[in-house]
Amino acid sequence: MDSMIQINNLKKTYSNGFNALKGININIEKGKFFGLLGPNGAGKTTTIGILTGLVNLTSGNVLIDGYDVIKDYKITRRMIGLSPQEINLDVFFTIKELLTFQGGYFGLSLSESKKRVEKLLYDLGLEDKVNAKARELSGGMKRRVQIAKALVHDPELIILDEPTAGVDIELRHLLWNSLKEMNIKQNKTLLLTTHYIEEAEALCDEVAIIDDGKIIAQGSPKELIKADGESYINITVNKINENILSDYNIDINENIIKITSKNPEKDIPNIINILSESNIAVRNLNVKTASLEDVFLKLTGKNIIDD
């Protein structure tokens, strides 16, 4: 499959000497929904900035659909739609005007851009706000306009930096659905950074975990969970016999046995068998399956949300 984004040994040192990226390599195939996860200051926004032209790279190179982001910037930038994390809406014009200009900046004629904008505003439920200015909108509406800005020129590659930060659950799910639809029905490539690991798990085919300017893991959420995730099986029993589950990594607290397992589907039947053979009755059993969040915590040693 063809690559949409190829990042090769990308390094970025800021003028204050901070090494934001220490030689990262990422390959994102066309049509993928890719998530870049990492704590604050890990290098996510720097990476996106280099892709889009907001940040000058120090060394390495980045290709978008085979074109270099520096040498062929006029080609690559037309392919990209960016929704930055911080709301940055032009305050002088109405929503319709600013989105129409946005289309124009990326090569759409103003009449073509107007048509696209009308459809987008309708799709995003903003049709009655076309003549409002940014400061008259609620936070959720501003976020929708911010995302609409990335979509006006119908780009092949959509880059979303924390698209659902500060958004209520209802809108978050609405945005998830429309992003997923763009990925599946229109075959767009999406690159997303997020603090909500649940979001990455729900949307992304593939994720990369970035920490301290380095990619520390990459793969599908399932693969990463399988490789580094640990589930917990909590069993409440009528009596305890510490020796019988010696093959497992267990932790006993009164009459609750907590078993750490990489493969709970396989382990649970075996454990039940062992317990029943020893005449130990199971009163309660619950499983906390491994999540991408656990993998993240294990690999980075940091909790993504607290950062």
Binding site: K74, R77, L82, P84, E86, N88, Q102
Partner: peptide, 15 residues
């Protein structure tokens, strides 16, 4: 104004 409200980014990412 574009710097202050950060929409200068819209110009910088344009082709």
């Amino acid at each position: 104004q574009a710097k202050y409200l950060k929409f200068i980014e819209d110009y910088l990412v344009a082709p």
